[in-house]
Amino acid sequence: MNKLKKFGKKNIGFIFIIPWLIGFLVFKLYPFMSSLYYSFTDYNLFAGMTEGFTLQNYKDVFTVPVELTALKTTFKYAFMTVPMKLVFALFIAYILNFKLKGVNLFRTIYYVPSILGGSVAIAVLWKALFNDNGLIRSGFALIGIDAPHFMSDPKWALLMISILRVWQFGSAMVVFLAALKGVSQDLYEAAAIDGASKTRQFFSITLPLITPVVFYNLVTQLVQAFQEFNGPYIITRGGPLGSTTLMSLLVYNNAFTGYDMGKASAQAWVLFVILMIFTMISFWSQKHWVYYADDEN
């Protein structure tokens, strides 16, 4: 009895995580595992399952043109959007990190798009802005440029979707801003005394010191970018010639219009594995470029 009581007392904290544990097991682990299971079958919600263990779904992801293109497009999208977003965010944060009047106003202006951006309303707005008669093309026409046909040109449609996300750099910017504020001024002063120019200061002091935050933003934005759905679904529905069919859209189409659960699960898993690889690479590469304040270096 005493031992039990002691055990209970020692592990009382466990009680607090029980809700999470239930949630994890029921809503995350179980679906995760069953998704893996389904990916090896040809389970169709209406036709049922005919084949047992089969690798066909996975093979298809890399051979069927539509699927392979979706994979490539997702990559293109992620590696176009995330760097652009981070660069903008850091750039603006850097400029904002200055005792200017109205910093708060600017901060709000840059942040509002993030708040609204994921909504259907904004996707609709984007449609209005980028179609052939829309604002963007009219604007360019004013200065004599024949802007591309974003809605119908496969080469440009993805950029339009990307811009929607990059426009929402506010959240990343705010994080960078907080990080920049945390960089001690002493360092800048010391560098200045030594004759370092502003640019040099930025690259040698600022950047290295905020690498943890860069890392954090990089990983979270990457995860988000790989899952993009609203934009492509509402604005282009997969786009001209499938040029904006991201993996998540493909999974949705297969699962909820085709009811091909097996195929959709395999596609989702491929996406997941690739994302995991990138995340792990990022984590592993940390020690080479991320500088934590409590490191010995």
């Binding site: 539509v66 496969p154 997969g238 001209p240 010639l241 499938g242 219009t257």
Partner: peptide, 22 residues
């Protein structure tokens, strides 16, 4: 028939003169 099915892809690509991979 469907957003990513044969009618759409064939007629779309034929009119564009190219397929999704260019």
């Amino acid at each position: 028939k469907g957003d990513t099915s044969v009618y759409t892809t064939v007629f779309e690509q034929y009119s564009y003169g190219m397929d999704a991979s260019g």
